[in-house]
């Protein structure tokens, strides 16, 4: 895997800052966009990327972050609709080759999958893991008391 890609991360919350720190440390050029400036404090001291303060649903802000040059855009804000809009704009208008959006609402995810937007749904992922853990736990107990 190449580690010198240009990656735009929208939202600098717990997930966004974690991804930004990680991807920056492994040698990528990272730009983080967030509309609340104080969230940038979650970036680690060795984060070598850029910070753009602004609302990513505005074209001007995406242009400032040079989204047109990005290899990857990841939309991680806590608002599904922001992530979906930014992902579509990045893919449809700025022609970013790889776009990922976090979407909490599994029902909304289906529609955007049809539109060709790659989404990750933390709700579904967590549910799956819980179910698996429950299944394993149950299996384990059955194993202990045959």
């Amino acid at each position: 895997m190449k580690n010198n890609r240009y990656i735009v991360i929208v939202g600098c919350g717990r997930l966004g800052s974690h991804l930004a720190n990680h991807l920056s440390r492994s040698g990528n050029s990272v730009v983080v966009i967030d509309k609340n400036e104080p969230t940038f404090k979650d970036l680690s001291p060795d984060f070598s990327g850029f910070r753009v303060h602004g609302d990513a649903t505005q074209m001007a802000v995406l242009k400032e972050a040079k989204v047109n040059q990005a290899d990857i855009l990841i939309a991680t804000t806590h608002e599904d609709n922001v992530n979906l809009m930014v992902a579509q704009v990045a893919q449809g208008i700025f022609r970013v080759p790889h776009v990922l959006a976090r979407v909490f609402d599994p029902k909304r995810m289906e529609v955007y999958a049809q539109l060709g937007i790659d989404t990750i749904c933390p709700t579904s992922v967590a549910a799956e893991m819980f179910l698996q853990a429950v299944a394993n736990g149950a299996a384990g107990r059955r194993g202990a008391n045959p």
Binding site: T57, D80, N81, V82, L84, M85, Q88, R108, V111, Q114
Partner: peptide, 16 residues
């Protein structure tokens, strides 16, 4: 007042 909501509302309405 939120563009992202307006976009998604219209997309859901027409697609779903």
């Amino acid at each position: 007042p939120n563009d992202q909501d307006n976009l998604v509302i219209c997309q859901l309405a027409s697609r779903k």
